[in-house]
């Protein structure tokens, strides 16, 4: 038990404004922090915009570049922080380490954070709800092939599955396999095949054929 949760009643919804207890609690904390000069509303606003500015399009750009530039791919896999800086992504501003893992015909990587929701947000934005769900966190390590089947991916028996459990200090990005039949595509066209889910490892990258049929 913590002091903050001792002896308080936590009604779900306040009848007056439809806001939940915690939404109103958060509003009170922010108002006090601003009133005491700990932070400003402008700083909170800016941080909100920065959080919203990141999306899987950033990761997709990195993956597509790795597919077309073998030198970059080697650098990305061996020492990702300086490699990402080449593309303008400054991960050095945090202390978080990143590892990029390559899916091949021999090994398929799946990323989870069993303890919470650690995720390479600089490249993928905020994690999807399911990544944070208790079901995914429990099952990704116990039955990764079953989890991937739920996402529509059947990993062949002979392919080894490696599950990577992220921490606050070490995050993982999956470099998916480049789909067949994409030899003639430009880097921008390739990036469109790179979904958020394939960079977590629950799916493969889209094939140009599946793109065409879903369009």
């Amino acid at each position: 038990m913590t002091e903050a949760h001792d002896g308080h009643q936590h009604p779900g919804i306040d009848g007056d404004d439809g806001q939940t207890y915690y939404a109103r609690r958060a509003q009170a904390i922010e108002a006090l922090l601003v009133a005491k000069g700990i932070c400003t509303t402008g700083e909170v606003q800016l941080a909100m915009e920065q959080v919203e500015a990141r999306s899987p399009a950033d990761g997709a750009r990195v993956v597509a570049h790795a597919w077309v530039d073998a030198g970059f791919k080697t650098r990305l896999l061996s020492d990702p922080i300086p490699a990402l800086a080449e593309l303008g992504y400054a991960l050095a501003e945090t202390t978080t380490q990143l590892e990029v893992v390559e899916n091949t015909d021999e090994v398929h990587h799946l990323v989870v954070c069993t303890l919470c929701s650690c995720y390479p947000s600089t490249l993928l934005g905020r994690p999807p709800d399911w990544y944070k769900s208790l079901a995914y966190r429990s099952r990704a390590v116990a039955d990764p092939r079953g989890v991937m089947r739920e996402f529509g991916l059947n990993v062949a028996e002979e392919v080894k599955v490696r599950v990577l459990d992220s921490t606050a200090d070490l995050r993982y990005l999956v470099l998916p396999r480049r789909p067949a039949g994409t030899e003639g595509l430009s880097e921008e066209e390739l990036a469109k095949l790179v979904t958020r889910d394939c960079m977590i490892g629950v799916t493969d990258a889209l094939s140009p054929v599946s793109m065409a049929s879903s369009a």
């Binding site: 399911w130 208790l134 429990s138 099952r139």
Partner: peptide, 12 residues
Amino acid sequence: RGSWPTDEPIDR
């Protein structure tokens, strides 16, 4: 949460 016994499907 790792390997907690559950068959709950993942709500996507």
